[in-house]
C-alpha cells in the first residue's frame, strides 16, 4: 500500500488530483491537506511514500513546506511532486532547488500525473 499526501488549498483541484491518483494502478491510500499547516500536522501521522503539493497557498507556501520536509530526517527521503499553475516558473525552480523531485503544470493531464507519481513511488520502493 502506497500512502500519498496531497497538499492543495483548492477543494476542486484536490478532488481532481485524488481522482487521478486513485486510478494509478497501484494499491494507494490518499490523505489530503488543505493548507501547509494541515500538512505539517498530517506528516507525523502517516508513513508517506509521496507528497504532492501546490506552491501558492495561504499560511505557509509550498516552498516552505518543501524546505521543512527536506530538513527533517524523518521525511527527507519522501519523494515530492509539485503541481503548480503556469506562470510561477521561478517558484517552481526554487522548489526543485529545495529538493522537490518533479513538477507538473496546472491544468495537468491526469495520465501524466499518474505516470510521474507511479515513477516516483516505484523509485522510492526500489531504493
Amino acid at each position: 500500500m502506497h500512502h500519498i499526501l496531497i497538499v492543495e488549498d483548492s477543494p476542486t483541484m484536490r478532488s481532481l488530483v485524488v481522482s487521478a491518483l486513485e486510478d494509478i494502478g497501484l494499491p494507494v491510500r490518499i490523505s489530503e491537506a488543505s493548507s501547509g499547516f494541515e500538512a505539517l500536522r498530517e506528516l507525523p501521522r502517516g508513513d508517506y511514500d509521496l507528497i504532492v503539493t501546490d506552491i501558492n497557498m495561504p499560511d505557509i507556501n509550498g516552498l516552505e513546506l518543501i524546505s521543512f520536509v527536506r530538513r527533517n530526517a524523518a521525511y527527507r527521503s519522501i519523494p515530492l511532486l509539485i503541481i503548480s499553475t503556469e506562470g510561477s516558473e521561478r517558484d517552481r525552480e526554487r522548489g526543485l532547488e529545495l529538493g522537490a523531485d518533479a513538477y507538473l503544470v496546472k491544468p495537468f493531464d491526469p495520465a501524466a500525473l499518474r505516470r510521474t507519481a507511479k515513477e516516483l513511488l516505484e523509485k522510492a520502493r526500489g531504493e
Binding site: 478532488s15 481522482s19 486510478d23 489530503e32 491537506a33 498530517e42
Partner: peptide, 15 residues
C-alpha cells in the same frame, strides 16, 4: 484532514 481510502472515482465530486 482525515486520511481516507478512496475507491470510487471522485470526478463527480470534483464537478
Amino acid at each position: 484532514m482525515a486520511a481516507r481510502r478512496t475507491q470510487k472515482p471522485a470526478r463527480n465530486r470534483a464537478t
